[in-house]
Amino acid sequence: MTEAAHSLALSEGTPTGPRLRRVPLATLARLAALALLVGLALSTPGFLSRVSLIALANAMSLVGCVALAMTFLTIGGNIMSLSLAATTSVAGMVFMAALGWGLPTAVVLALVAGGVISGLQGAVIGWLRANPIIVSLAAYALLIGAAQLVAGPKVLPAGPDFQLLKGRWLDVPISFLVFVGLAIIGQLIVSFTRFGHELMFVGSNNRAAEAAGIHVGRVTVAAHVLAGAFAAIGGILVASRFGSADMQTARGFEYTAIAAVLIGGTSIAGGSGSLLQTLLGIAAIAVINALALMQGFSMEVQRLTVGCAVLVVIVLQGLGRMKR
C-alpha cells in the first residue's frame, strides 16, 4: 500500500518540478492578454450592459460544451477530434426527433447517441492505436453523409418541450447554467476520480501507463464516451436554441473548441490541463468576439485573431518545453 502511494506521489511529483519552471513565460503572456482584454472591455461602451452580458453568456455556452468535451480527449493524449462537432449535430438531431416521447427520454437518447458515436471511435483509437486524427476525420465524413441519408437536411422538433431550455432563470440563460454545471462536473471527474488520474497518466505517457498496469484502451474509450456525452449536451442546447437540428449550425465548432482548450492552458501534448481552464479559454474567445463586434471589426478578423492566439499558445508551450 505504502509503496503504491509512494509511486503515485512520485508520478505526480515529477512533472510539477519542470512545470513550475515553465510557468513564468506562459503566465506572463496569459496575464498580459488578460489585462489587454479587460482594458478593452472596460473601454468599450456598453460591454458591461445586461443585454451584452446575456449575449456573451449565450455565445459561450453552446460551443463551450464541445470545448469541455474536447478537453477530455486533449488531456488523454489524443490531440483533438475532428468529428466532435458532427457528433454534436447528430445528437441534436436525435434529441429533436425523440422529443415526441418527452424531454427526459429525448435527452437520454441524445446522450446515448453522442456517447456511442464517440465511444466507437475511442475503441478503434484506444485498442488498436489507430491515429486519432485520421479516425475522427473519417468519422466526420461518415456522420455528415449518414445524417444526410437518414435524416435529410433538417430535423424539426417532434414536441414543444425544448422551449424550456431556451429560457432564463433569474435572468441567466439556462444554457449558460448547463455549461457551467458541466464544467464543474467534468472538473470533479478529472480531479477526484480514479479515471481522471488514469487519464492524465495515459495522456502524459501511454506506454508508461500501460506498463504500470493501466488499461489504456479502456481509459481512452471512457474519455471518448464522456466527450461524446458532453458534446451531445451541446447538441441539445444548439438544437433548442435554433428550434431545429441540422449539420450546419455546429459546423466548425471543433476548431473553436480546440482553440479554447489550448488558449485555456491545456497542453496539446496531453497529460495536463483542466476543464475550468477550458472554461476560461472559451470565455476569452467569446470576449474577443464580442469586443471585435462592438468595436466594428468584421467576423473575419475574429477568426484570424483566434487562429493567431492558438499559434502563439502552441509556440509558447513549445518554448516552455524547450527550457525544460
Binding site: I79, I133, V310, V315, G318
Partner: peptide, 23 residues
C-alpha cells in the same frame, strides 16, 4: 526550431489560414 509536434503547428496554421482566407 522549437521541436514542436507538426500536428499542433499545422493545427494552429489551419485555423489561422482559414481566418486569413476570410479576411
Amino acid at each position: 526550431g522549437l521541436g514542436l509536434s507538426s500536428i499542433s503547428v499545422s493545427l494552429g496554421a489551419l485555423i489561422t489560414l482559414a481566418g486569413l482566407s476570410y479576411v
